[in-house]
Simulated scan of single mutants.
Amino acid sequence: MKNKSIDYILRGTWQAISRMYNEEATKYGATMATGFTLLNIDKENGTPSTALGPKMGIEATSLTRTLKSMEEKGLIIKKKNPDDGRGVLIYLTDYGKEKRALSKSTVIQFNESIKKHISDEKWQNFIEVAETINRLIQEKEIFNQSENEIAKSKKD
């Protein structure tokens, strides 16, 4: 992947991972989005619907469709939030908890398989690079640099 941009590498890798998870999820009548949502719902106390989107980095409209499908399949139930009558809490059903465990084991299997093929040092480097990218983006340091700062950083 020499001479390819960071975003090209990340996007291509994420697309491959997404395709792999969707192929696996299809075997169980689900999607990657369903599995990801199951993993982000607190299995004991439920999760406010308004907290799910930001937690998962998903737009509200996409999440609404996913939650509707999950409710129709009996994976979740929605209940009024007792602390906020306007809000809704999402709870996993027993069936949803079963599918959550399956999703979790799939993610663990993926991670363990990858870790078998790379050293601990490379794994730590990968984590550090990803965290640095995320920090720079969150702190809005990518496009807010002056041209002088960019030129200086290239020299270093």
Results as ranks from 00 to 15, higher is better:
residue 100 R to Q: 01
residue 151 A to W: 10
residue 18 S to G: 12
residue 136 L to T: 03
residue 12 G to D: 00
residue 154 K to A: 12
residue 118 I to W: 11
residue 122 K to A: 08
residue 125 N to T: 11
residue 95 Y to H: 05
residue 42 D to S: 02
residue 79 K to P: 01
residue 136 L to E: 14
residue 122 K to L: 15
residue 133 I to N: 01
residue 34 T to R: 05
residue 52 L to D: 01
residue 68 K to H: 11
residue 19 R to D: 12
residue 132 T to G: 08
residue 47 T to Q: 00
residue 140 K to H: 13
residue 125 N to M: 12
residue 82 P to I: 09
residue 28 Y to G: 00
residue 112 E to S: 15
residue 156 D to Y: 13
residue 95 Y to N: 05
residue 47 T to G: 01
residue 87 G to H: 10
residue 115 K to A: 15
residue 83 D to L: 11
residue 49 S to G: 08
residue 49 S to E: 13
residue 25 A to L: 06
residue 151 A to V: 05
residue 148 N to F: 14
residue 84 D to I: 14
residue 156 D to C: 09
residue 70 M to V: 00
residue 95 Y to W: 04
residue 101 A to C: 02
residue 79 K to Y: 06
residue 126 F to L: 11
residue 39 L to Y: 02
residue 45 N to M: 09
residue 122 K to N: 13
residue 97 K to F: 00
residue 69 S to Q: 09
residue 144 N to I: 05
residue 151 A to L: 13
residue 94 D to P: 01
residue 150 I to T: 12
residue 50 T to G: 07
residue 155 K to G: 08
residue 153 S to F: 09
residue 10 L to T: 03
residue 140 K to D: 15
residue 56 M to S: 09
residue 131 E to T: 04
residue 29 G to Y: 06
residue 151 A to F: 11
residue 33 A to I: 05
residue 151 A to Q: 12
residue 23 E to M: 13
residue 148 N to S: 12
residue 33 A to V: 08
residue 17 I to V: 14
residue 11 R to L: 14
residue 6 I to F: 09
residue 107 V to M: 10
residue 114 I to Q: 06
residue 8 Y to R: 00
residue 121 E to C: 08
residue 35 G to L: 07
residue 25 A to S: 09
residue 139 E to C: 06
residue 135 R to F: 10
residue 104 K to M: 04
residue 11 R to G: 01
residue 38 L to P: 00
residue 32 M to G: 05
residue 136 L to Y: 14
residue 61 T to D: 11
residue 6 I to A: 10
residue 147 E to S: 11
residue 92 L to M: 04
residue 94 D to W: 00
residue 40 N to S: 03
residue 155 K to Y: 07
residue 82 P to T: 03
residue 125 N to H: 11
residue 86 R to H: 14
residue 86 R to F: 06
residue 135 R to D: 15
residue 32 M to P: 03
residue 112 E to Y: 04
residue 62 S to M: 11
residue 79 K to S: 08
residue 13 T to H: 05
residue 155 K to I: 08
residue 144 N to F: 12
residue 81 N to W: 00
residue 51 A to S: 13
residue 9 I to E: 02
residue 12 G to N: 04
residue 14 W to A: 10
residue 30 A to L: 13
residue 5 S to K: 04
residue 122 K to P: 04
residue 96 G to A: 01
residue 44 E to W: 09
residue 131 E to S: 10
residue 152 K to T: 09
residue 123 W to K: 10
residue 73 K to N: 00
residue 35 G to Q: 02
residue 21 Y to W: 11
residue 124 Q to D: 13
residue 71 E to T: 03
residue 84 D to Q: 13
residue 63 L to R: 07
residue 144 N to L: 09
residue 15 Q to P: 04
residue 119 S to K: 15
residue 27 K to N: 07
residue 137 I to G: 03
residue 75 L to V: 01
residue 43 K to T: 00
residue 5 S to D: 10
residue 15 Q to W: 11
residue 63 L to I: 01
